Simulated scan of single mutants.
Amino acid sequence: MPRRSLPTSSAISTDPLELARRLLDEGEPSLSDLAARTGLSASHLQRRFRARFGLSPAEYLARKKLGTLKSALREGRDVTTALYDAGYGSPSRLYEQGASKLGMTPATYRAGGRGVAIRWTLVDTVLGRTLVAATERGICAVELGGDDSVLEQKLREEFPLAQLERVEAGRDDFLAPRLRAVAERLAGGDAEVPVDLLGTGFQQRVWDALMKIPAGETVSYAGLAQSLGAPRAARAVASACAHNRIAVVVPCHRVIRGDGSLGGYRWGLPRKQQLLARERG
C-alpha cells in the first residue's frame, strides 16, 4: 500500500516554514519577526508559507485563534473569558476577526448554532444514501449511511438550535451547485467543494492536512501527527479523523495505522477499503 512521504523530525527542525508554523503556534509573531527568525525575506516567507499550508502566516494565526475560541465556547465557557483566552484582546476584535468566520456570533455558536441557517438534503450517491448540509460559507456535513432518520439525527445533534431547512435535492438554487460538486467528489472526481470546517484549532489543522493528501496515497496517524509538528499526538489525530463530518471531501479515509492496517473509519471499514481501492485503481 503506498505511503505518503513525510519529513523526519530533523528535517522539520531545520525547515524554515515548519519553524515559522511552530512560532505561530506558540505565540503571535509579526511577519517581520518570522522573517528574522527563519532567515527568509518577508515576501519570500509569505509566498512559500502560503504555497505549503494554503494560508498566509496572518491567516494561519487567525485560524488558530478562531479554533481556540470555538473550542472554549463548545466547552461552555462564557464569551468574555473565551475571547481573551483566544487572544483577541477585546470584543470588537473578536467580532471583526472571529464572528464572520464562524458564520455566527460566538454566543450563537456556543448555543448550538441558534438561529444559523443550514440547508440540507438527502440524496442517493455512488456511496449510498448521503446527507449533505451547508451553511452560507460552505459544506458543513457530508454523512453517509443507510437510514435517513439516523443521518438527520446526526445533523440535529451537531446543531440542535440551528435553523435547519430541508430542501428538495437539485431544486434549491443555493444547495444545488454544492450538491453537484459533492456528488462528483463522492464519485471519484475532483470538483472543488467549498467547506465550512467547524471544530477546534487542532481539528482544523488535521482536516486541512487531510485535504492535502493526494488521492491514491496514504499516511499513518503517527506520520500525520509528526507532519503537524506534534509527534506525540497520534491519538489526537485519530480523534480528529473520527470527528470529521465531511466524508470523502475531507479524506480521513487516507489515514491508516503504522502497520498498514486500516484503523477506524466513521462510515465503516468496508467503505474505507472501497475508497482506497478505488483511488489506487
Rank of each mutant, 00 (worst) to 15 (best):
Y84N: 07
P270V: 03
A99Y: 03
R266N: 10
A36M: 09
E279V: 11
K64P: 11
D208H: 09
R245Y: 08
P106D: 11
P177G: 00
L198E: 08
L175R: 01
K70M: 15
P231E: 03
A62M: 09
S220I: 04
R266Q: 06
G39S: 03
G268K: 10
R232Q: 15
Q97D: 10
E143Y: 01
D173L: 15
R257F: 11
K272A: 01
G39I: 05
T130H: 14
K154F: 13
L276S: 03
R205D: 12
V249I: 13
A225Y: 08
D15V: 05
R245E: 14
V79E: 04
V150Y: 13
R77P: 04
A222Y: 00
G223H: 08
E143R: 02
R114F: 10
A215E: 10
I118N: 05
L179P: 04
E217V: 14
P194D: 11
A141N: 02
E217N: 12
P91F: 04
A222S: 14
T135Y: 00
G54Y: 07
D33R: 07
V248H: 05
G199A: 10
A238D: 02
Q97A: 12
R21P: 00
A209F: 03
L262Q: 04
E28K: 14
I246Y: 03
E192I: 07
L94H: 00
